[in-house]
């Protein structure tokens, strides 16, 4: 589903979202992942209220269990999203890590 053209087009959007801080307003732990995410599961997915006023859904990385709480401060980072597809392109996207 991830066309190289689409991944290329999304680069600008990803760049504009790096390094923004925010707070966790909800989280879950995905234990039964969709295709392409099998090597990462189980992993937390959170809704984050960013300082810029936007809210996003993103995976939480580089975390300890103690970080999965309401109000935890996080910052947006770039990470690999899924396993590379058959075209060999590695899709990157926005995740968050605790501060």
């Amino acid at each position: 589903m991830q066309s190289p053209v689409k991944i290329w087009r999304n680069q600008k959007k990803i760049q504009s979202l790096i390094g923004i801080t925010g707070k966790i307003i909800s989280w879950t732990i995905v234990r039964v992942p969709p295709g392409g995410f099998g090597d990462q599961a189980p992993y937390p997915v959170a809704v984050i209220a960013l300082k810029n006023g936007e809210k996003i859904t993103a995976q939480v990385v580089d975390f300890d269990e103690k970080h999965l709480i309401f109000g935890q401060e996080v910052v947006t980072v770039v990470r690999r999203v899924t396993q590379p597809n058959t075209e060999g392109i590695i899709p990157y996207g926005i995740k968050v890590k605790p501060l």
């Binding site: 992993y43 809704v47 993103a58 899924t82 926005i94």
Partner: peptide
Amino acid sequence: EERSAGATFPGLYAL
């Protein structure tokens, strides 16, 4: 955005 986060439908309703 939700697909990139690796969310699933159980995950979204869990949120």
